[in-house]
């Protein structure tokens, strides 16, 4: 089943067009990798999908689970099951991870017409998911991302993903700033969450992460367009040859 359909998507910021006609279809059970050099529009794509209002959609449409994504507010997209693991997770001083997640879980449940989770069930859920990403439960009492190292922040993103259990997860440069151990933990977490009825888009500059999260389909984004698509071996090829040959060939 089609989860995400991006059709001829154009987006601009302050009048500069960044996305220049993206076409992309993601089906349930698939893992897509979007690679590309700096400034090609990778982060813009994830921000536009999540609904950041700095960007102007100038053309095209996006369907998520058959619904027009641009009719939905950011929190509605989240409640529908779209999850963005931020490249730069935001610090929210004074708000504990626990409180933050509890609010998110229950707001999403409310959206779905479900009763809020009891404190007991919530804690059970949290503990279970914390194990998945090897997260020390002490983290839960700390303020959201405040004073976290780069690796801890990324791990916290995957932990939130585990708790919120999305249909489509977009990992935006989740590997940046991670050492090899952290990378392994994060990738393990993501792999354990893979199911036939959900999907993942991994956005990355390097092939490294794809050794751990093996994609079904690899796209190269360049200058606001997907210029090449291939299988997982294509990513290796990119790593060897760099992006220059792509730039030359388009």
């Amino acid at each position: 089943m089609k989860l995400l359909e991006v059709k001829n998507l154009h987006a601009a910021i302050d009048g500069n067009e960044i996305l220049k006609g993206i076409n992309l279809t993601v089906n349930e059970g698939e893992v897509h990798a979007i690679m590309g050099p700096n400034g090609s529009g990778k982060s813009t794509l994830s921000a536009v999908l999540a609904g950041k209002d700095d960007y102007e959609i100038t053309e095209g449409e996006v369907l998520f689970k058959g619904k027009n994504l641009f009719d939905l507010e950011p929190e509605e997209r989240a409640a529908e099951g779209l999850f963005l693991a931020f490249q730069y997770p935001v610090e929210i001083p004074g708000v504990s991870n626990m409180n933050f997640l509890k609010t998110a879980v229950n707001e999403i449940r409310e959206y779905k017409g479900l009763e809020p989770l009891s404190a007991k069930d919530f804690i059970k859920l949290i503990k279970e998911k914390a194990k998945l990403v090897e997260l020390d439960p002490k983290f839960l009492q700390r303020a959201v991302n405040e004073g976290f190292s780069g690796g801890e922040k990324k791990r916290n993103e995957i932990f939130q993903m585990a708790v919120l259990d999305p249909k489509l997860a977009i990992l935006d440069e989740t590997d940046s700033g991670l050492d090899i151990d952290a990378l392994r933990i994060v990738a393990n977490g993501v792999n354990k969450l893979r199911r036939p009825d959900n999907a993942t888009i991994v956005i990355t500059h390097y092939q490294r992460l794809l050794d751990y999260i093996v994609p079904d389909i690899v796209h190269v984004l360049y200058n606001g367009k997907i210029v090449k698509t291939g299988d997982k071996n294509f990513a290796m090829e990119l790593e060897e040859k760099g992006y220059d040959w792509i730039k030359e060939s388009v």
């Binding site: 609904g51 997209r77 929210i92 933050f100 997640l101 707001e107």
Partner: peptide
């Protein structure tokens, strides 16, 4: 925006 992306409504996000 971070809160919104996690499914939390704006008014709730602000109070949080």
């Amino acid at each position: 925006f971070y809160c919104l992306q996690r499914g939390i409504k704006e008014e709730k996000a602000i109070s949080l």
